[in-house]
Structure formats: C-alpha cells, structure tokens
Write a protein that binds this DNA or RNA. Structure first.
Lengths: 335, 335
DNA sequence: CTGAAAGCGCTAACAT
DNA sequence: ATGTTAGCGCTTTCAG
C-alpha cells in the first residue's frame, strides 16, 4: 500500500518549508518561481491535501449535512438536487443520511452530523431532534428544518415549509369545481404538515357547504395500511348514504399505494371516483393524475443558501403550493 | 455564539487528564468512579466529540463517499438506499455527490472525496475518474465502480455491474415470444452498459432469425432528444417496409420520455407497438410496463459491504437481470 | 517573500 | 488506573 504524500513531503521535494507550500496551495504571497517548484512537487508526488486536517483547524468541515426521513418520497429527491446544486457551487459536498422513518435513527444521525462538524445541517426530522439542532445553531452551525416551522427559533435555526392549509384549500376548491361532494382522505400520520393539509381541506370544504366528517379521514402509516384505509373510507361513505366520489391523499409518499388500491378494486378514475394527491412526479402526466405540487427543487436551493449565506436572525420561509390539474378529477378538457 | 466544549474542557471539569476522558469515551480501562465523573462533565458541558480530529489521527474519515451521475434515475435511488443501509449499520454516513452527467464534475467530485479521506468510494462515473480511483485504491481506500467493469483492477478496486448482454437477450426473447418482429431501440449513449445491452439484444434477435438493422437503433443523450429519435425510428421502419411493432429503451432514465413520445403520437401500447424498458419503478405496475429489473438495492448492499469489509483482491461482481412481464408487450394474460 | 514554531482537538505510547 | 508527552497534517502568527 502506497503511503500518501503529506504537505511535508511536498515541502521537502520542492526544497521549501511547509508554510510556503500551504501558501501556494491557498493563494498566499509567493514568488512565481517557488510556486512553480511547489506545483511540480505536488504533481510529482500526486499530493492530495487532507480536508479533514483543514477542517480541524477551521473548526468545521466544508460539507453540508442532510438528514432525510424517507428517501423514496418524490419530494426529497428534488430537494436534494437543489441542495446539491448550491453545495457544488460552493465547493461543498452533501453528506446524506436516511432515517427510514425511525425516530431513534433521526436522533443518531443528527448527532453524527454534529460530530462531523458539518458546515450546516438540513433536516426533515421531527421534534425529537430539535434540542440538538437548536444547540448546533447556537454553536454557529446553521440548521434548516424542512416541512415544519419551529417555535422560538434561535438565530441560525431556520425553517422552510409549504403553506399546507393552502394546499388543502386548493384541493377542496378544485374538487368542488369538478362537482365532487363526498370526499375521503388518506393521510399519513400525526405530522403537522398532514394535520394542516387536512384542516385546510376541511375548512375550505365547509366554506363551500361541504362538511368533511371526522370519520372520512383515515390515517395510514405505511403503504401496507393504505388498502385497508381505502376500504374503510368506501364503506363509511356508503353507510353514510353518500358514496365517495373523490379520494384525497395528503402525502406523496402514499400516492402509488392509494392509486393501486383504487384500481385493484376496479374503481375508475375519475369515472367512479376523483383522485388528487400531493407532490408532482414524472409519471403523473402519463397517468393524468392531478396533484398539488411543492416547489421542492426551489426549496432545496433556498435551504442550501441559508446554510451558505448564514443570515443572522432565524429565517422562516413558507412556499406556496400550486395545483397541477390534469384529468383524474374529471376536469373538463379545454376545447 | 456559544463556544463548543473540547476534550480539554471536559477533562478540566471532571478533574482528570484528556487521556482519561478519551479513554472513557472510547472504552479504555478506567475506574467506574472516574467514568461517572467524566460522563457527568460530558453532559454538563454538552460535549460532542469532533469526528474530524479523530479522522486526522486515523488517517481517514468514517464516511462512505458516493458519486452519482444522475440522481433522477430510478436505479440510483435504490442503490443509495442499499449503501445507506450498510453505512448505518457500521456507524458510517454517506457522502453524496451528484454530477449532473458532466465529466468535469465527475472528476472534481471524486477528487473532493479523496481530499475528504473517505473510508471508501462508490462511483457510477466514467473512465475519466479511473486514474484517481485506481490511486485511491492503492492508497488503501476501497473503491467500487458501479455499472461497468474495470480492466486490470488493482487490489481494493472493485466493480459491480449488470449482465447487460443477458438483459438484451431477455428483451429479445420476450418480444419474440409476444410475436413482435420489427423492433426499434432508443439507447442513451456510448457507455458500455448501453452498447452491451444493444449487442445482447441484437445477437439474441439474430439467433431467432430476426435481424436488427443498424439504423433501427437511435441514441438520445437527453430527454429532449427522445421524441425526435422515436420519430426517426418510426419513419425508418415504414421506409423499410416493416413498420415497427416494438420499441425497446435501454436505459431507465429515458423511460418516461419514450413512453410520453409514444402516447403523444396516439400510439397504443401494446396495441400498436410493444414497449419494454430497463429498471423497475413503482409506477410500472400501474402502467403495465414490462421491464428488465436490476437488483439495485442488493447491488447497493454489496457495494457498501465491499467498502466495509475491504477484501484483499479486486472483486468483480456481475448481477443477473430479471424480466418483469406485465402487459406492455401484449403478453397474453394468465387464465 | 520565506521559514521557524506554535497549535487546532484528539489519540496513543510510555511512564508512573 | 491515570497522567505526561508526543504527535496526526495542516494553517497561521511572527520573525527575519
């Protein structure tokens, strides 16, 4: 195994001191002649500087930490692309951790990011990690919380989220506009984003004279639970004397599962039941699925910028959702 | 901004030396009494050890580097999940870099990974980075090349790929079995994987008495070029007097685009033309698209293990593709 | 413009 | 069992 060259080796080879080598590497004042000698030594010895050591000195590394709850959600891929774009433009790399939706992993991964002295941290985790991110912010590591807002955030602790109430409202208005009145909701849990979307939907529906009963909302934690949830929704609608004519899914993660549950029962979309869900995805066009889109790539960009630009106060960004109407709600086609 | 506690602060607070603190942190021989005092100091000062410094000493960090050419390809998401799984099980993190299919970025990102002294490197890049990965391997950093094999790999330089010829053969046999005979191919470029898939397809087709003309293969680098490529294929088939009855796509990255191009022309799948493509994806079931699947998650797992287990020689792993038959080739349904 | 020397936070011999 | 003393590879004063 070949030993790596250190800055000392380069210095010796070029006949200068390590300080001088460091200077030519980082752009200090050196004669052109010595600079040339040093560069020659660098390439001769195939010297690759050790970023770790640099980080030790600077007190932090140059990489941006990202902790994602669930890599398979379409939303996160674009978010990461946005972050990565900013990172690449700032000579940074992205350090990624997936938590597979487990809280203990969230906590552990955020701690590891802290240990790595990341330049900044972007997380989609729940409240369990707030204690540490708060402390990190106080220690000078900018932290960005995605998909929820934070109360009493200290300087350096930011949040980026979607206007979830508006997302719900957009769904309600669109569905009503398409003549639907008996709606069932598949939601994914107790996260505020889910609650707010449902609340926004319910309120807007009520304003339209279309109350959404409590029991028309079902929670499915995992994809496996979706089929049962859809069943229940269907039965309850019938029992209520108002068979469902629309299904709303409040999370992009479960879109496939809900769609599959519907088609598996031979339910035609939108013939029998309208369908609208969260987060745009490449195949939505082919399938004609109407969605509420988040500007996920833009959100990633902003998250990256918050890390790189280090604004002083806590920044809270709320993005607006947009409706992408296709055909799954029985939209009348333009002539 | 609150200053972080160092190991020295903890030592002072606990009334011991830094060596002792290091020992209780890393499990050396210490009295239970002192250990308690140290742990108390640790939590009182909210001490978080600096992984960078550790890395300096060990000569390398504990994170696994991953350089991906195109994060949006369905194949890579599962690959990353596999790698991440191994990383998490080994107290590692994944450092991710996306290169947006640009060679200069590939080279730059791999260099950065080297500078970060990653524990191991997993790349999907082209030959341009082979020089450095080779050197890294020689320096003791295991490198895994995904999706192509490497000639004369030194110890510590491994490769994981798909049996691409077999993938092409599977497509040919299936298509022929579905009664198709005039096939057009959309390929994504000059990478060996693409070449091999096409070659495998062509050979198997020839064995079946179904020659695949050179001009029945079109290369589309980007999604924008797909539509034109499909047009050309269609026209050529007609000119040849053998209108296309099947389209093959040799890369998962372009599946959406090819599918969209077909439906945009009002072509029915499989009524008018059969369609088969690479890489399984969540929506394939809903759309009935027949695919050749790669065990991407397993490949990620293996890649992670090669980094963690550091086998001595160069390892070359070739995975077998599987056909997932659905309805897009006009498969006759089971009774 | 360049070199000597101190030190970043931590670990690992070597003493005690 | 614990402390002392060197470093790890690099950057940054501070002299010259």
């Amino acid at each position: 195994m070949v030993k790596r060259a250190t800055i000392g080796d380069v210095a010796a080879d070029a006949g200068v001191s390590t300080a001088t080598v460091s200077r030519v590497l980082n752009g200090g004042a050196v004669t052109e002649a010595t600079a040339t000698r040093v560069w020659e030594a660098v390439s001769r010895l195939e010297y690759t500087p050790n970023a770790l050591t640099r980080g030790v000195f600077a007190g932090r590394s140059s990489t941006i930490g990202v902790v994602i709850r669930d890599l398979s959600s379409p939303f996160y891929l674009d978010l990461i692309r946005g972050i990565d774009e900013v990172a690449a433009a700032n000579d940074s790399l992205v350090m990624l951790a997936n938590t597979f939706r487990r809280v203990d992993r969230e906590v552990a991964q955020v701690r590891t990011m802290d240990e790595q002295r990341v330049r900044g941290l972007i997380v989609t985790t729940g409240e369990a990690t707030d204690g540490r991110t708060r402390r990190m912010a106080e220690n000078g590591t900018p932290c960005v919380i995605i998909a929820r807002s934070v109360l009493d955030a200290p300087p350096g602790m930011h949040s980026i989220s979607l206007d979830n109430v508006e997302a719900g409202r957009l769904m309600a208005v669109h569905l009503a506009g398409c003549g639907r009145s008996s709606i069932g909701v598949v939601s994914s849990g107790r996260r505020t984003s889910q609650i707010e979307r449902t609340a926004g939907l319910r309120r807007a529906l009520a304003d339209l004279g279309l109350p959404l009963p409590e029991d028309a909302v079902m929670v499915a934690e995992t994809e496996d639970e979706v089929s049962g949830a859809v069943d229940t929704l269907l039965v309850r609608g019938r029992d209520r004397g108002e068979p469902l004519d629309a299904i709303v899914c409040t999370t992009g993660r479960l879109t496939v599962a809900v769609h599959a549950a519907l088609t598996a029962r031979g339910i035609a979309i939108p013939g029998d039941i309208a369908f609208v869900t969260m987060d745009d995805f490449p195949w939505a066009t082919a399938l004609g699925i109407t969605v509420i889109a988040q500007p996920s790539y833009q959100m990633g960009l902003k998250a990256g910028e918050l890390v790189v630009d280090r604004p002083s106060g806590p920044v809270e960004l709320v993005f607006a959702p947009t409706l992408v109407a296709r055909t799954s709600c029985g939209e009348r086609q333009k002539a």
